[in-house]
Amino acid sequence: MSSTPAIASDRLTKAYGKKQVVNDLTFRVNAGEVYALVGPNGAGKTTVIRLVTGLAFPTSGSVSILGEDPHKRPAVRRRLGAVVEAPAAFYPYLTGRANLRLHAALAGGVKDARIEEVLALMELKHAADRKVGVYSLGMRQRLGVAAAVLTHPEVLILDEPASGMDPLSLHLVHGVLRKAAEEGTAVLLSTHHLDEVVAYCTRVAILEEGALIDEVNLYDRRDRYRLRPTSVADAVRLLEGRPFVRHVSARGSEIVFIPRAASDLAEVTRHLGEGGVGVLEMQRDVFDLRGYYRERVHSERVRRTGTGTNGGLPRFPGEA
């Protein structure tokens, strides 16, 4: 795998007049990753997407796609698939298939068979000869994803891909993006659907007022376990540095650890037992992104304004 990140943003800043929309944003997305941008409305997610795709120009800082500046080297867009409008924008007087043919002509080197393949992939075969103007919101979004993956891109960038989608369509799109990532495509998306993020994203960047306030590695968070041992200090000492554990730390009367693989859990308990530490309770540490997100956004507002929201931001329904 190349060491060049698929998408790189270095100290990216965008200002419209005196209003700073994106502020000193640095992040990397590697091949095979699904990286999500989340944040409140107006946090700058769409602007970041437009800057990264080369549709907008940064005030300062730089972006690169596969090591190339998309402004200076538009040819790099041959390796990029993107949907930057929600819903995805198409010529309404053309059919779904004709719109994809147009994309294929602009991209060059796409065979008709591939158009049929992506139509089938996004379950749009039945509507392929209908004009896009009569498509539902969800169908247009699916056609957007079909257009984005048309050229087998190495980088996929999607602004609000879940917007207007029913659960089945959403599941379909998730599957396509997950598969693309598994095949080595770097995926950058912006979304408000935190459940969607937890389900299949690798890392998530939380934006507030155009700045990156946190970057969470969901791969680690998803695979965390909480364990209540008879001795926290001994448990940490016994597990630290062991090959079957990637991370271990104390948290009150518990320890939190990440096994190298799920199959290593038995090894953890066996090792603790051999060291004389009993396991009172062990369970998966379900990461509550919604609660985490709420806290991070709230604390950032408090830090920035000195006051924050009265009583913090309201909890999400069903939040842990």
């Binding site: 437009r50 924008a89 257009a147």
Partner: peptide, 14 residues
């Protein structure tokens, strides 16, 4: 109006 301007510019078109 259609929002197709960015769509086209995201292709390898200068």
């Amino acid at each position: 109006t259609n929002g197709t301007l960015p769509t086209v510019l995201l292709r390898p078109v200068t």
